[in-house]
Amino acid sequence: MMDILLLSNSLHTYLVIAALLFGIGIYGLVQRQNFIGMLISAELILSGASLNFMAFNHFLAPDPTVGQIFTLFIMAIAAAEVAIALSIIIAVYRNYKSIDTEDVTDLQG
C-alpha cells in the first residue's frame, strides 16, 4: 500500500491526473453549448498534455530541459490559439448576435 503523502514522487500520479484532465476536457467539449465553453475545455485538454510532458521529462528523460521547452512551446501555441479563437468568436457574435453552437447553422436549412 502506497503512502498517500508520498504521491508526488511517483510518475503514475501525474499520469493519472493528466488523464483525468484530458477526460474532463473531452466531456466539456462534447457537452458545452457555446463556443467560449468549448474553448475553455480545449484549454483543459492542452494542460493535460503539458502535464504529461512535464512528468515524463522529470522522471524518465535523460535531458530534463526538453520537456520544459516543449511545455513552453505548448503555452505559446495555446496563447496564439486563444487569440485567434476569441477573435473568431467575436466576429461570429457580430454576425449572429449569439455564441450558441446551435444558432450558427446557416447551411442546415
Binding site: I36, A79, I99
Partner: peptide, 30 residues
C-alpha cells in the same frame, strides 16, 4: 516536478493572460 520557471510561466501566461482574455471575450459576447 522541479521546474519553477515553467510554473511561473504557467501562472503568468495562463492565469494572467489567457483567463483575462477569455473574461474580456465573455464581457463582449457572452
Amino acid at each position: 516536478l522541479n521546474s519553477p520557471f515553467v510554473a511561473l510561466m504557467q501562472i503568468l501566461i495562463y492565469v494572467g493572460g489567457v483567463c483575462v482574455t477569455i473574461i474580456f471575450a465573455v464581457m463582449l459576447a457572452g
